[in-house]
Computed example of a mutant assay.
Amino acid sequence: MGLSIAPHDLLQLNSRWREVEADHDLPEWVLRSLEHTPWVVVRRAPALEGQIAVGVRGKERHLRQALTIPDHLVVQQVTPEQLLQSSLSPDHRSIAKERWHTMPALQVLEQLAVSWKSYDLHWGPAGSTGFELATGMPTLTMTSDLDIVLRCTSFLAPVLAEQLLEQTLDLPVRVDVQIETPYGAVALSEWARPATDQVLMRTLQGPLLVTDPWNPRLV
């Protein structure tokens, strides 16, 4: 299938998703979750050609299952960036109007979209917010954080990172922004305000301390 995917993308599976049972000893809650909502999130982990490393969400926060799936099970792919665009258009929203009025994370997402509008950025919601926007399932709670993916293929100046970070503070919910580089991800808060000359980057090979997330070989 040759899907071009990235961590945090959401994938809808076709009716053959039960094929994964043959390769994984899956808990019963995973089967129930996929039966009800056959969506998974792409995770940062190695996978063989034709396979995708994904995670399954359960109803409770602690219920998370990592597995790999064949790419032919995917019928739809939704990126955080696409979710942002659809969320800004009331005519294309996948969830009820009442959720937008009552869920703080959704209200903060709209507020952040206004704050960051003047920047040339590629970003969108992930985590519980992204999952609810993609599937229409009510996964958010009143205390849910807002997880954001910020895709940066080229260097993001720390001074700009500081400006972006400032606009995520003092909001009704905690906003967690991950900067995705071609090599991995770093927290916006760490890149904007590094405690040392190195920051922690999540990579396919595991966590790595780097001085430049866009050129990690210079560490």
Rank of each mutant, 00 (worst) to 15 (best):
M1S: 00
L3G: 00
L3N: 00
D9Y: 00
D9V: 00
L11W: 00
Q12D: 01
N14P: 04
S15N: 10
R16C: 03
W17S: 04
W17E: 05
R18L: 10
R18M: 07
E19P: 01
A22Y: 07
A22V: 12
A22L: 12
D25E: 10
L26C: 07
L31T: 05
S33R: 10
E35G: 13
H36S: 14
W39M: 04
W39N: 02
W39K: 01
V40H: 01
V41Y: 00
R43N: 09
R43H: 07
R44Q: 11
L48E: 09
L48Q: 05
G50Q: 05
Q51H: 06
A53S: 12
V56W: 04
R57M: 10
K59I: 14
R61M: 13
H62I: 14
L63G: 12
L63W: 14
L63C: 13
R64S: 15
R64G: 13
R64Q: 13
Q65Y: 15
Q65R: 15
T68N: 12
P70T: 12
D71F: 00
D71A: 08
D71N: 12
V74F: 07
V74Y: 04
Q77P: 04
V78H: 01
V78T: 12
P80F: 11
L84M: 13
L84Q: 11
Q85K: 14
S86L: 15
S87V: 05
L88C: 15
L88V: 13
L88A: 13
S89V: 13
D91S: 15
D91L: 15
D91P: 10
S94R: 13
S94D: 11
S94F: 08
I95T: 13
R99E: 15
T102N: 14
T102D: 13
M103N: 08
L106D: 02
L106Q: 03
L106H: 01
S115N: 15
K117W: 04
D120F: 04
D120R: 07
H122R: 11
G124S: 09
A126V: 06
S128N: 07
S128Q: 06
T129Q: 05
T129P: 07
G130W: 03
F131K: 09
E132I: 00
L133V: 10
P138S: 01
P138D: 02
P138G: 02
P138H: 01
D145H: 03
L146M: 03
I148Q: 02
L150E: 02
C152L: 02
F155T: 09
F155K: 06
A157F: 03
P158D: 04
V159I: 09
A161Y: 02
E162N: 10
E162T: 11
E162F: 07
L164K: 02
Q167K: 13
D170F: 04
D170A: 10
L171C: 04
P172V: 07
V173R: 01
V173E: 02
V175F: 04
V177K: 05
Q178A: 12
T181N: 05
P182K: 03
A185T: 08
S189G: 12
W191H: 07
A195L: 15
D197E: 12
Q198D: 02
V199H: 05
R202E: 08
T203Q: 05
T203A: 06
Q205Y: 04
Q205E: 12
P207L: 10
L208A: 05
L209I: 09
V210R: 02
T211R: 15
W214M: 08
L218Q: 14
